[in-house]
Amino acid sequence: MNESQNDFRELKHLLKLKRHESPPPGFFEHFSDEVVNRIRAGEARSQSSVAERLNDHAPWLVNFLRVFEAKPGLIGGFAASLCLLLVLGVVLAEHSESGPQNVFTTASTESASPDGSSAVPSAVPEFASVGAAEGGIAISTNASLQPVASLFGQASGASLFQPASFAPAH
C-alpha cells in the first residue's frame, strides 16, 4: 500500500497544477449578480406565464381587463357602479326584513301539516274577520312587512297575511 501511495505522489504533484487554473480576472466580481439577475428574470417570467395561462383559459377576462388598461377612467366608473349596486342591495335588504321570517313561517307550517291544511294561515284571517264582525279592533299590520314576492319568489306568501286595520269596526 505504501508503494502505491509513493507512486501516486508525483501524480498528486501534477494534479496540483489544476489548482493554478484560474478564470479570467474579475470573473467572480459579477458572478453573483448574474445569478441573482437570472433568478429575478425567472420569477418575472413565471409571473408572465400566469398571465398567459389566464389568457388561454379566460380570454374574455383578459380582454375585459385590457379595456381598463386602455381607458383608466372606466375603472372609476366601474367601481362607482359596483358601489351603487352594493348600496341598492343594502337598502333593499333593509326594506325586506320580514321576508325571511315569512319564509320560515311558511316552511314550518308546511312541515307541520303535510296534507297542506295549515292552522296558522287560516287562523289569522279568522281572528281578523271575527274581530271586525264583533265590533272589536281589527289588527292592521304594516304593509311594508308583507313579503316581497319578487325577492323570495313566494307568491303564495301573500295568502298568509291579510291586511288588517285597528280602526273601529262599523
Binding site: H13, L14, K16, L17, H20, E21, S22, P24
Partner: peptide, 18 residues
C-alpha cells in the same frame, strides 16, 4: 476551453520538478 495558469504555478517546486 482551459483557464490560464496563474503566476504562482511557476513558483511551485513540486510542479517545476516535473
Amino acid at each position: 476551453s482551459l483557464n490560464d495558469i496563474d503566476f504562482n504555478a511557476e513558483h511551485d517546486p513540486d510542479l517545476m520538478a516535473l
